[in-house]
């Protein structure tokens, strides 16, 4: 079958030369390929940005990398002293007064969109944007940082009986995809099942969240945090490991008391993801007190539960 060529009279100039769109597209694509493959941010630009951030970022500032996919390179170049676990696996951004957003390709992090831009420094292909939080929260105590025998006592409550879980330093546990949140080396281990330790959970958006890994083992898991500075609210989040979020099992409830007085509880149901909660503690504001968290769930199956909470 031959390709018909249609020549109905004199073609208009644009019709006559319309064929040129195709070779132009080919050449444009070639040019775009050359530009794209030669516009990778060089290592020296990353290092210059790191020097700048190291010199200017305060410990309480956020350092974050944009777009999201460049985060591994940011962690590699900036190292764990700047790209700290607290910054990388933050519960949210509310506690940070300022953010150093280190970006390439005009990348911007959506959760910093409402922050006030104070300035931009450019280091070749890498830019550092300084942003100010319009309403930073003042965190008094972060309970995830208190997971140690000095500040925390863990017990398993069975009926009226409360059995202490011992703190130990053992080998961490991890596995292949589907294993879930890693079990940290430093952890409270409960006789009869259950443990508590600080780890990093993958939430339903696949973000890292530093949290207290406390899977309920069919009994109440009680965490007593000693000598906590109390503010006006307990501010927290909780989640299950992402694959467990799809198990559609019983909800997990966390109930807080301060010096024995009930403060409130939060319930996490499957597929709710990294769910925030806030409980009023105004009655105890300005005091130091014991904060107790009771974690309950009627089943232990795939309840890979992790929470974080701070006082503010």
């Amino acid at each position: 079958m031959a390709v018909a060529s249609h020549n109905h009279g004199e073609a208009r100039p644009w019709q006559k030369w319309a064929f040129a769109i195709v070779p132009a597209a080919g050449l444009f694509e070639l040019g775009a390929h050359v530009v794209q493959t030669h516009s990778v941010a060089p290592e020296r630009d990353w290092h210059a940005a790191r020097e700048y951030v190291a010199a200017h970022a305060a410990p309480e500032d956020l350092v974050a990398f944009a777009p999201r996919w460049v985060d591994p390179i940011g962690r590699e170049v900036f190292g764990p002293r700047l790209a700290t676990l607290e910054r990388e696996a933050r519960p949210d951004e509310t506690r940070f007064p300022r953010a150093f957003e280190v970006g390439i390709r005009a990348g911007a992090l959506p959760f910093l969109a409402g922050w006030r831009r104070l300035g931009v420094e450019r280091f070749g292909a890498v830019s550092v944007t300084l942003l100010e939080n319009p309403a930073p929260a003042q965190v008094l105590d972060d309970l995830v940082s208190k997971v140690s025998p000095d500040h925390l006592r863990v017990s398993r409550v069975d009926g009226g009986r409360e059995e202490d879980c011992s703190f130990s330093h053992a080998a961490p546990q991890s596995g292949q995809l589907g294993f879930g949140t890693a079990v940290p080396a430093d952890r409270f281990i409960c006789a009869g099942g259950g443990f508590v330790g600080a780890s990093v959970v993958e939430d339903t958006e696949y973000y890292p969240r530093r949290c207290i890994y406390a899977p309920p083992a069919g009994r109440t898991l009680r965490l007593r945090f000693a000598d906590i500075r109390i503010g006006h609210v307990l501010h927290g989040h909780h989640a299950l490991y992402v694959e467990a979020e799809h198990s559609m099992k019983a909800p997990v409830t966390i109930t807080f008391t301060i010096n024995g007085a009930p403060i409130g509880s939060a319930v996490h149901r499957d597929l709710e993801g990294w769910k925030p909660f806030e409980l009023d503690t105004s009655a105890f504001a300005g005091t130091r007190a014991e904060v107790v968290a009771d974690i309950d769930c009627p089943t232990s199956e795939r309840r890979m539960y992790c929470f974080e909470v701070d006082t503010r």
Binding site: Q36, V40, E76, P80, T181, Y207
Partner: peptide, 26 residues
């Protein structure tokens, strides 16, 4: 990403030593 986070916990660092990249993409 889950494996990244497991490594952070078990290795005690969130910083890779080296990244294989293609056009700057990890």
């Amino acid at each position: 990403n889950e494996l990244d986070y497991s490594i952070w916990v078990t290795f005690g660092t969130d910083a890779p030593t080296y990244i294989v990249e293609h056009d700057g993409v990890p």
